[in-house]
Simulated scan of single mutants.
Amino acid sequence: MKAIQLRRISHVGLRVADLEEASRRWQIQFGLSLRERTSTHAFLHCGYESYSLELMESGNPGYDHTAYELSAEVSISDAAEYLESKAIAYQTENGSLHLQDAEGNKVEIVPYAASSDLRPDVARSTKILPGFRPRKLGHVNYLTGKLREQVEFYTDILGMKITDKLGTEGIWLHINADHHVMALVNKGYPHIHHFALEMVDWGELRVAFDHLAQHGRWLAWGPLRHGLGRNLSGYVRIPEEGCFVEIFCDMEQLEEGHVPREWPDNAHSSNVWGILPPRSYFRFDEAAIRSEKEGLEAQGIPLAPLEVSK
């Protein structure tokens, strides 16, 4: 029996309030291109991939799922057989497997799709792609209240490998040479934190941040340089779909046989330039959004603790 082996992250799915508005917004603000549009779905891509963002006009706006592509050595039927051997419930829909992780986050497993052109994107020709666009979808990050169970699911079931540990509260996981395809941070409750779009270099990050600022967006944290992961990045708040988008470049590339590292849970590990995120960075309520947008913390107006209903 073949264990599940993943090749890459395929796409992220978001539920939106207005498909036309959201599709235009993600195209104009983040440089994505429309691949296909139906009455209920829009599929957006960065460059030459099929798509990286699926928007759906269904249910309450917010994060819906993350999809991963299988390696060439593992078929969908192989993956289904492996899930059955592990007693993991799944459904088959349109040739993909749909399941849930330990906290109910939806996961889609899609079959391997060989590229019709193996050349790098800069060597190809296009008549439709805009000059400003992300290079690719890079990773997702979840807040969790079940760190151990989530790590077990993504390593034992989906075959991810641990890259790094941040004290006892954070785990970063990889499936290829990119430092991570997923991170899990223990905050006591489950919530998507961000998905990440990769740019080529620091110059493109500057262009992206200037562009987003002109559309009323702001950085909740950044620009910064992570110690853990090495990437340059900034985190853009998306109130409409209840998440952040990380715009990043210069991610650490792992050598074969990488050994997981233990990082101290301090400011330098999170940001070698020294600034930790504001308290609002791990929250998605209206008070946190207002605090960020109006710079209240910098004015000495603290963010009140989040009231958790029991």
Score class of each variant (00 low, 15 high):
G145C: 12
P277L: 04
D101W: 06
F284S: 12
F282N: 15
E256D: 15
G227H: 11
N141D: 04
A220R: 12
D78V: 00
D178L: 10
A267D: 08
V308L: 14
N141Y: 02
H215A: 07
E103Y: 08
P278Y: 03
Q27H: 02
R261S: 02
F195K: 08
I238R: 01
K86Q: 14
S125T: 13
Q214L: 15
H215Q: 10
E297W: 08
D64S: 15
L276S: 12
V200K: 13
V236E: 09
S96L: 00
D156T: 04
D201L: 07
T155F: 10
T163V: 01
S10C: 07
R148A: 15
Y68L: 03
R206M: 03
H174I: 07
S280D: 10
I192A: 12
L184E: 06
V259E: 09
S233M: 04
H194V: 05
R7V: 07
Y48K: 01
G31E: 09
L306E: 12
S116L: 11
A196D: 11
Y90T: 00
V107K: 02
A114R: 12
S115H: 14
M160D: 10
E246P: 00
H180D: 04
M56C: 15
K86S: 01
L6N: 10
H180K: 09
I301T: 10
K106Q: 13
D78R: 01
Y48N: 09
G257F: 07
N176M: 11
Q253L: 14
P239A: 15
L184D: 05
N105Q: 13
K161L: 08
E49I: 05
V74Y: 00
I4G: 01
Q5E: 09
W221V: 02
V151I: 13
I157L: 00
V107I: 15
Q29F: 07
R35H: 05
L34M: 13
D64G: 07
V107W: 00
S75C: 03
A183L: 01
P278S: 08
G216I: 02
F195A: 11
E84H: 02
K127H: 12
D18M: 09
H11M: 08
G104F: 08
G242I: 11
E169G: 05
R261Y: 00
A72M: 08
G234D: 01
V151N: 04
W263R: 02
R133N: 15
G138S: 14
A267S: 06
A113Y: 07
T66S: 11
A22N: 12
H65P: 02
L19V: 12
Y235L: 06
G170T: 13
N105E: 10
R135C: 01
V259F: 04
E292A: 05
W263P: 01
G13F: 05
N186H: 14
E84S: 12
A213R: 14
E262H: 10
V16Q: 09
D178K: 09
F284C: 07
S58H: 14
H174N: 13
F43S: 09
N176H: 15
G227C: 07
G203M: 00
L254D: 03
V12C: 14
D121C: 03
D178N: 13
Y82V: 00
G257W: 09
H194S: 05
H65S: 05
E286L: 13
L70K: 02
S77F: 00
L197H: 03
G300K: 03
I192G: 01
L53D: 10
L173W: 04
L224Y: 01
